[in-house]
Simulated scan of single mutants.
Amino acid sequence: MNHDPRQAPVAHDHVSRRTFLQWSAVASASSLLPSLAGAEPSTNSSNVTAEGWVKELHDSLSSDQQKAICFPFDHSLRKKVANNWAIVKTEVADLKPAQREIVDHILRGICSEEGYEKFQKQMEEDSGGLDYYHPAIFGKPGASKFEFVLTGRHNTMRADGNSVEGAAFGGPIFYGHDADGFHEKPHHPGNVFWYQAERANEVFGALDPKQRDKALLGRAPRENDIAFRNANYPGLAVSEMSSDQKDLVKQVMADLLSPYRKQDADEVMELITANGGLDKIHLAYYSQDSQGNNGDIGDDGVWDIWRLEGPGFVWHYRGKPHVHVYVNIADVDKIVAAT
Rank of each mutant, 00 (worst) to 15 (best):
Asp264Tyr: 13
Ala274Ser: 06
Trp303Glu: 08
Arg261Leu: 02
Arg318Glu: 06
Tyr317Gln: 09
Gly295Ser: 07
Val302Tyr: 09
Ala265Phe: 12
Ala284Glu: 02
Phe313Lys: 08
Thr273His: 13
Trp303Ala: 13
Tyr317Asp: 02
Gly292Asn: 08
Phe313Leu: 13
His282Cys: 13
Thr273Glu: 15
Tyr260Met: 13
His282Ala: 01
Glu267Phe: 15
Asp296Ile: 12
Gly277Gln: 09
Gln263Leu: 13
Leu308Gly: 01
Trp315Phe: 12
Asp296Arg: 05
Ile272Met: 10
Gln288Trp: 03
Asp279Tyr: 02
Met269Cys: 10
Trp306Cys: 13
Tyr285Glu: 05
Ile297Ser: 03
Gly295Asp: 01
Leu271Ile: 15
Met269Val: 14
Asn275Ser: 07
Arg318His: 04
Asp304Arg: 08
Ile297Met: 04
Gly301Trp: 05
Leu308Thr: 07
Arg318Asp: 04
Ile297Asp: 00
Gly277Asp: 13
Phe313Asp: 04
Lys262Pro: 00
Gly319Val: 11
Ile305Ser: 00
Gln291Lys: 13
Ile281Ala: 02
Tyr286Asn: 07
Glu309Thr: 06
Leu278Cys: 03
Leu271His: 06
Leu271Gln: 06
Ile272Leu: 09
Leu283Asn: 01
Gln291Trp: 03
Val268Phe: 08
Ile305Phe: 01
Asp279Gln: 05
Gly292Pro: 09
Ser290Pro: 00
Asp296Ala: 06
His316Thr: 00
Gly310Ile: 06
Ser287His: 01
His282Glu: 03
Gln263Ala: 12
Asp299Met: 09
Gln291Asn: 14
Tyr260Cys: 01
Trp306Tyr: 14
Asn293Leu: 12
Glu267Asn: 13
Trp315Thr: 00
Gly292Thr: 07
Trp303Ile: 01
Asp300Trp: 08
Ala274Ile: 02
Gly312Ser: 07
Tyr286Phe: 15
Asn275Tyr: 09
Ser290Gln: 07
Ser290Val: 01
Asp279Ser: 12
Asp266Pro: 02
Arg318Gly: 02
Arg261Met: 09
Arg318Cys: 04
Glu309Ala: 14
Gly310Lys: 06
Asn294Ser: 10
Leu308Ser: 00
